[in-house]
Amino acid sequence: MNETENAAPTMLFVGGLHRSGTTLFASLMGTHPEISGFRHTGAPEDEGQHLQTVLPIDEHHGGPGRFAFAPDAYLTESSPYASVETARRLRAQWNRYWDLSKPILLEKSPPNLIRFRLLQELFPNSKFILMMRNPVSVTLSTRKWSPSLSHRDLVRHWLHAHKIAFEDARSLRYFMTVRYEDLMEDPERTMESVASFLDIPNAFATTQIAPFLDGRYAAQWSAEVDRAVLDDLRDAVADRGYTL
C-alpha cells in the first residue's frame, strides 16, 4: 500500500439550500484528483441523501422551501441518530459510490446545512462547506418547484436555515462558507480558498465554470414582489451580506 492508502480519508460534507449552487460546486470539487464525489449514481443530483437509507431525506420534512422549519429535520450530536451504528451504516452505503483510494470523500446534500453537528459527531475529523446564494435568486428559482409558497415564506425559510447553519458552525472544528456569487465572479480565487481550507493544491478545473450572474432575477423580483411585505426581513438578510 502507498501512503495515501494507509491514511484515513477525510470526509467532506457540503450543504446549502436547494438552488444555492451545491450541485455545480460539487461537480467542480469532483474535478480535483484528490477528491472523490458521487457521479452518475442515478440519484437526483447525485445527492448523498438519496444514496442511503439511514437518515431522513428533505422530502420527509416538506422538501424545498420547507424542510428547515421542521423540528425533526434539525439533527445534532444530541439526536438519536448520533451512534456508532449510524456512522457504520452510512459509510457502508456511501462507500459503494466513492473511490476509496482518494484522500477526500465528498458528500453533498441540501439538508446537510442543518445537520452538520450530527455529521461531525458521526465522523469527527470531517470538514464542512456551506454553499450560500442570494435569497432573491433562491426564492425565485425554488418557487418553480413549490409554487404554493409565497416569496415571504421562502425568504423566511432562507433566513431560518442559515441562522441554524451559522449558529451550529460555532461547534464545528472545520467549517467554511462559499458564496455562489463569489464562485461565479472569480472561480479561481474562490477555489484557491477552498484548496487552502482542505490543505490540498489548487487543482480544480475552474475553466468549466461559465460565469452566470443573477441579474435576470432582479427584474423578475421587482415585477413580482410587493416590497412592503418583506420590509421586516430586510435587516436580517443584510446581516447575512445580501439585500432584497
Rank of each mutant, 00 (worst) to 15 (best):
T243I: 09
W221T: 11
V136H: 05
D226N: 14
V225H: 03
P33A: 05
V54W: 02
F13Y: 08
L24A: 15
L90C: 07
A68Y: 03
D153N: 15
L154C: 05
T142R: 00
R143C: 06
D168S: 08
N95F: 02
A218D: 15
F13Q: 07
D46W: 03
M184T: 01
F116M: 10
A161D: 11
G42Y: 11
M11I: 09
K102H: 07
D72I: 04
W221H: 02
P103I: 02
Q93T: 07
L159E: 09
D168I: 01
L172K: 03
I200Y: 06
H157E: 14
D235P: 05
R152T: 12
P56Q: 07
M131A: 07
N202H: 14
Q208C: 08
D239L: 01
L230Q: 08
S101T: 13
G15E: 06
A223L: 07
D182G: 03
A73N: 08
N202C: 13
T31P: 14
A228M: 09
R133K: 10
F123W: 08
R170Q: 13
S171T: 10
G63E: 13
R66E: 15
K144V: 12
L51Q: 09
R189D: 13
R88T: 13
L154W: 04
L140D: 13
G215S: 07
S78L: 10
W98M: 07
F69P: 04
G48P: 09
A7H: 08
E192S: 07
T177Y: 01
M131T: 12
T4V: 14
F166T: 13
Y180R: 08
H40F: 12
G48M: 02
A205H: 10
P80I: 10
A238I: 06
L233W: 06
L17N: 09
L230C: 13
A169F: 05
G65K: 02
S146F: 03
T86L: 12
T207E: 15
A236W: 04
S150N: 08
T190D: 08
L75R: 13
G63P: 11
H40A: 14
D182W: 00
E34V: 05
P135F: 03
R173G: 15
V178G: 02
E34D: 14
H50V: 04
F197L: 04
L140F: 01
R240C: 10
K102I: 10
L230P: 06
S222K: 14
P211D: 12
D226I: 05
L90K: 01
R173F: 02
D168V: 00
T4G: 04
P44S: 05
V84G: 03
F212N: 15
S109H: 02
K144P: 07
E107N: 11
M1I: 00
Q220N: 12
A161N: 10
M11G: 01
Q93E: 15
M11D: 00
Q52V: 10
G48V: 03
N2T: 13
Q93K: 01
E3F: 01
H60T: 11
Q120E: 15
E85M: 01
A92M: 09
Y174M: 04
F67D: 07
W145Q: 12
F13D: 09
P71S: 11
L12W: 00
A73W: 06
E3R: 09
Q120M: 08
L105Y: 01
Q52A: 11
F13I: 04
T207C: 12
P124Q: 12
A238Y: 00
G37H: 04
S78I: 00
R240K: 12
W158L: 05
